[in-house]
Design a protein around this nucleic acid. Structure first.
Lengths: 244, 244
DNA sequence: TGTCTTCTTGTTGTCTGACAACCTGTTTTT
DNA sequence: AAAAACAGGTTGTCAGACAACAAGAAGACA
């Protein structure tokens, strides 16, 4: 939540400076990669103590807007590093909630596939074909290549999101994937057993790909929804995810 | 992005303490409403200076995890105050981007409708019926009641999101609606002319409602998608939104 | 000349101490 | 009893210092 969203409390100096700095970056007064003024000069120009500037910059670092290196300076982060969306870590508190996150992703991914079916270029299709081949190849490695397959699958749907032409869908999906990975990798992903259902899963992906190739919007979004509904079911059946 | 997402840089003390504190809250060691230990005692127990603790808490305040009152203390914020999702204000910079936001909402809403068709209770249905009646009644007021109708429509889909049983979908949609309203109210909503297409629009909503009543998952999500595709088209036709 | 070492300088990260602003409960005064 | 002054504690801000670190400058040496 942005500080100015909370109207209840009188904004502190830190809130003020933090907002000023982030606006400078968001408005493009500070270009990506550019070095921020030093904390001391910022403190002087804002008329506050250095601690205030530090707390403000600390927030920006936390938000991924700037990146600082000790002994060198603070720099405006690349736009690719700053996501349009942020999700609270609290969302992954309980493993049961993960299923709801996956439902959320289902809706967005299916929309992405539908849009991709409409807007895809031949180049997009080529990327998707390649990603699909990678999935197929990863499967041939058996359980050992489980993680590789997961990455290939993610890459496949990322291509779809790119082909949708919708920047926000792409960003939101990649953010979700990143966070889901962080939460799941340690728990489940490493000992995932893909061979059990590899064939059917691949067929589900294939259906998505072919619908997009045929530029069939409805079929594409439905194929995604179908895949995820089965995926959710598989996930629910897994013992290592059922706990807590 | 959380600090531990960036693996490149050695985590600073502030990163460490910030993470420790947020985990204490997220893991429930500190209950909502509870007062945090004083900055000084936190500094002592963590073995760092108070400035470090302050920078860490500053991040948590920015994230809405804690709320502090000068002279009293810092308190764990209510979970309702910590919204699961945040969207950067930059997303609404250009009006052209609004269409992409709407596409994003389409995907989530259609997923919500599908889930609602499965999970709805009779009570949910009753709420939706009431919301639909409100929409219908708002339309009879003609153009004057345009804004009222917009609110009724939003309320209708909010009911659907609630019936989906998915907390994140509900939160994300309400966040999007809030932000879209903030951006659009001044521009378009006040002089919206609903009478031109009121009948057909209402029929679209009705289709959603009946699909959910019939517990037809596919029909429900398709009906939403159909409505939004037409809504996007209407929006694109509007001159006051085409500029910039 | 070229390369390595050392020094210098500047910046961020952390520490320490102090005071201002503020809230709350207690005590004193009226 | 009610109001005012007091006391203690906490956050917010300030000031100064040093440590950690990086990058360039200057010098030593082959």
């Amino acid at each position: 939540m942005d500080s100015f969203t909370r109207l209840s409390r009188r904004p502190s100096l830190t809130d003020d400076i933090s907002q000023k700095l982030s606006r400078m970056i968001l408005d493009g007064k500070l270009v990506a990669g550019e070095q921020l003024p030093t904390e001391q000069s910022l403190a002087e120009s804002f008329g506050v103590a250095r601690t205030v500037v530090r707390e403000a910059i600390s927030r920006l670092k936390h938000d991924g807007l700037v990146d600082s290196r000790q002994g060198v300076g603070a720099f405006v982060a690349e736009p690719s590093a700053r996501s349009a969306f942020r999700i609270s870590p609290a969302c992954f508190e309980k493993r049961q909630k993960l299923l709801e996150i996956l439902q959320l992703r289902t809706g967005i991914t299916s929309e992405a596939a539908g849009l991709a079916a409409v807007h895809r270029t031949d180049a997009d299709l080529q990327f998707m074909d390649t990603a699909y081949d990678n999935m197929e190849r990863a499967l041939s490695g058996g359980d050992a290549a489980a993680e590789k397959h997961v990455l290939a699958e993610r890459s496949f749907y990322q291509r779809i999101a790119e082909a949708s032409g919708n920047q926000y869908i792409l960003e939101f999906l990649s953010m979700l994937d990143t966070r889901i990975d962080m939460e799941l990798r340690s728990v489940a992903m490493k000992n995932a057993r893909v061979t059990e259902w590899s064939a059917e899963v691949l067929a589900e992906h294939k259906a998505v790909l072919e619908a997009i190739r045929a530029q069939d919007e409805t079929a594409a979004s439905q194929a995604v929804r179908y895949h995820y509904s089965l995926a959710a079911q598989r996930l629910a059946d897994r013992a290592d995810l059922a706990d807590t």
